[in-house]
Design a protein around this nucleic acid. Structure first.
Length: 277
DNA sequence: CATATGTCCTGAGAGC
DNA sequence: TGCTCTCAGGACATAT
């Protein structure tokens, strides 16, 4: 589940390719479901060939590889990886950029479940295609005031609202549970009913947790899919207080036990003591 | 308009 | 042991 810290780690791992030239774009003809790609892989390959990579950036949970003219937008969704290292397997490779002029020989987009997408657009289309009306401010830069005002303008349970990328971009299921726990907020509380002091705590804990998770190079869950730039597991999963810890005592208050509930078809984990309604 | 639900996908793990 | 079944969730489509 690459969320903001995992996608940020992928982007940092791609830095060595900045300045490289794209010699060839390989479509591995994955035997599973064909990758969702716009435009077709054929014209994407033709457009990228010979382009120099000018930068790598992240927007929400998407990785963007920039060339002089184009932005290649890779969306890992659940099981995608963008890396200069060997992918976990041959069979789920979706796209390879063969490079020259840098140490790494290639960039690989790998995605076991194939939910990820590939999009190539003109650089100046990034905001209109990906941001306007679709993505709120990034979780790492949103001010406390805007965070509070955007969340409190909806009436859904706070955990569900945090997952809405139109409100704040970058938070996913795992970090939503963790930040609510750290702030001591009931995940079922209506986002419209939470007071500004609690929102200030939530905003502060969000920044602490996301930045720490980036330092730890993300969370690698039990399926082992997510890897950092060096093909190693991240280590933030060892710091999780509630996510995937149902039945265990709460590490903060020592009691708990951690509860698991389902909200909007997603698991939510919380401590009934620390996060009392 | 705001919010809720359904859908895609593979492989790990549970249960018999 | 080997089979079948459930579940994981990001983002978009469709329904209410």
């Amino acid at each position: 589940m690459p969320e903001l810290p995992e996608v940020e780690t992928m982007c940092r791992g791609l830095r060595p390719v900045i300045g490289a030239l794209i010699n060839r774009v390989v479509d591995p003809k994955c035997t599973y479901r064909p990758v969702v790609c716009e435009p077709s892989m054929r014209s994407l390959a033709a457009r990228l060939r010979g382009q120099a990579i000018t930068g790598v950036s992240r927007i929400g949970k998407r990785v963007i590889i920039e060339t002089q003219r184009w932005s290649l937008v890779l969306q890992p969704k659940m099981t995608g990886l963008v890396s200069i290292e060997e992918p976990p397997s041959r069979e789920h490779v979706r796209l390879i950029l063969e490079l020259s002029g840098c140490e790494p020989e290639s960039v690989t987009f790998w995605d076991r479940r194939g939910l990820g997408t590939i999009l190539l657009i003109e650089r100046d289309q990034v905001v209109s295609r990906l941001v306007t009306g679709k993505l709120g401010p990034d979780a790492l830069v949103i001010s406390c005031q805007e965070f509070t005002s955007r969340l409190s303008s909806t009436r859904r349970p706070i955990k569900v609202a945090l997952l809405d990328q139109k409100i704040v971009a970058g938070i996913g299921n795992l970090y939503a549970s963790e930040m609510l726990h750290a702030a001591g907020i009931d995940p079922c509380a209506s986002s419209a009913a939470i007071d500004s002091r609690a929102y200030a705590r939530l905003h502060a804990e969000m920044l602490i947790i996301l930045n720490l998770a980036i330092q730890y190079e993300g969370s690698t869950l039990s399926d082992g899919t997510y890897r950092n730039a060096l093909n190693q597991a991240g280590s933030y999963q060892n710091e999780h207080k509630v996510y995937d810890r149902a039945g265990q005592p709460c590490p903060t208050c020592g009691t708990g036990p951690i509860q698991r509930i389902v909200q909007a078809q997603r698991s939510t984990f919380f401590c009934a003591t620390c996060q009392r309604p």
